[in-house]
Amino acid sequence: MTRSTGAKGCSPDNAAAEGFFGRPRQEFFHRRSFAGVSMDGFIGMLNDYMVWYRDKRIKTEYGTGIMDRRRKLGLVA
């Protein structure tokens, strides 16, 4: 991943980027040992995490996953 943030002094952009990149650090990187994992294996694990994060992770604001919320609102099939 390449981190991309806003211009220097643009705190709303930087805060959003820090919030996004902080979550995988807490939930993905710090909970595992990557000893003996190949680069392809790591990429696969990270991809699985990102799919889970996008589709299945429970948002406390909604009480459900974001994709379930979108389905309920009729935004996705």
Rank of each mutant, 00 (worst) to 15 (best):
residue 70 R to F: 15
residue 46 L to Y: 10
residue 54 R to I: 11
residue 47 N to Q: 06
residue 58 I to F: 05
residue 51 V to A: 10
residue 2 T to K: 04
residue 27 E to Y: 02
residue 61 E to P: 04
residue 32 R to P: 02
residue 58 I to H: 06
residue 51 V to Y: 14
residue 2 T to A: 05
residue 77 A to F: 10
residue 4 S to W: 07
residue 16 A to R: 11
residue 5 T to H: 05
residue 2 T to N: 05
residue 9 G to Q: 04
residue 11 S to D: 08
residue 27 E to C: 03
residue 15 A to K: 10
residue 68 D to P: 06
residue 5 T to G: 06
residue 4 S to G: 06
residue 14 N to M: 06
residue 44 G to Q: 10
residue 28 F to H: 01
residue 52 W to S: 11
residue 22 G to N: 11
residue 23 R to H: 15
residue 71 R to K: 15
residue 9 G to W: 14
residue 15 A to L: 09
residue 72 K to M: 15
residue 73 L to F: 11
residue 47 N to P: 00
residue 47 N to C: 03
residue 56 K to M: 13
residue 41 G to A: 08
residue 39 M to G: 00
residue 62 Y to A: 12
residue 25 R to W: 02
residue 59 K to Y: 14
residue 18 E to N: 13
residue 67 M to G: 02
residue 23 R to S: 07
residue 62 Y to S: 12
residue 48 D to A: 13
residue 13 D to A: 07
residue 5 T to C: 05
residue 63 G to D: 10
residue 53 Y to G: 01
residue 25 R to P: 00
residue 40 D to N: 08
residue 35 A to T: 14
residue 56 K to E: 13
residue 8 K to E: 12
residue 13 D to R: 06
residue 4 S to C: 10
residue 55 D to Y: 12
residue 39 M to T: 13
residue 45 M to R: 09
residue 37 V to G: 02
residue 59 K to L: 12
residue 5 T to P: 00
residue 43 I to K: 11
residue 46 L to V: 07
residue 24 P to L: 03
residue 16 A to P: 01
residue 68 D to F: 07
residue 77 A to Q: 09
residue 1 M to L: 09
residue 24 P to D: 01
residue 32 R to S: 04
residue 45 M to L: 12
residue 30 H to V: 02
residue 47 N to V: 01
residue 55 D to V: 12
residue 20 F to H: 05
residue 6 G to P: 01
residue 42 F to T: 00
residue 43 I to N: 10
residue 60 T to E: 14
residue 12 P to F: 02
residue 76 V to C: 06
residue 73 L to I: 08
residue 3 R to H: 07
residue 12 P to G: 02
residue 10 C to V: 00
residue 52 W to N: 09
residue 46 L to W: 07
residue 52 W to R: 12
residue 65 G to N: 03
residue 6 G to E: 00
residue 57 R to D: 05
residue 71 R to W: 08
residue 25 R to M: 05
residue 57 R to A: 07
residue 17 A to R: 11
residue 33 S to K: 05
residue 52 W to M: 10
residue 25 R to A: 04
residue 40 D to P: 02
residue 43 I to R: 13
residue 14 N to F: 00
residue 46 L to A: 13
residue 40 D to E: 11
residue 52 W to Y: 13
residue 27 E to A: 05
residue 71 R to Q: 13
residue 77 A to V: 14
residue 39 M to H: 10
residue 6 G to D: 00
residue 18 E to K: 12
residue 16 A to C: 09
residue 40 D to S: 06
residue 72 K to R: 15
residue 76 V to Y: 08
residue 34 F to L: 03
residue 23 R to M: 11
residue 70 R to E: 10
residue 50 M to F: 08
residue 69 R to Q: 13
residue 17 A to I: 09
residue 48 D to S: 11
residue 58 I to E: 03
residue 5 T to L: 04
residue 13 D to Q: 05
residue 4 S to R: 14
residue 34 F to Q: 03
residue 34 F to P: 03
residue 73 L to R: 13
residue 75 L to I: 07
residue 61 E to N: 15
residue 25 R to N: 04
residue 61 E to G: 12
residue 73 L to K: 15
residue 62 Y to W: 14
residue 20 F to R: 10
residue 50 M to T: 09
residue 46 L to R: 05
residue 41 G to R: 03
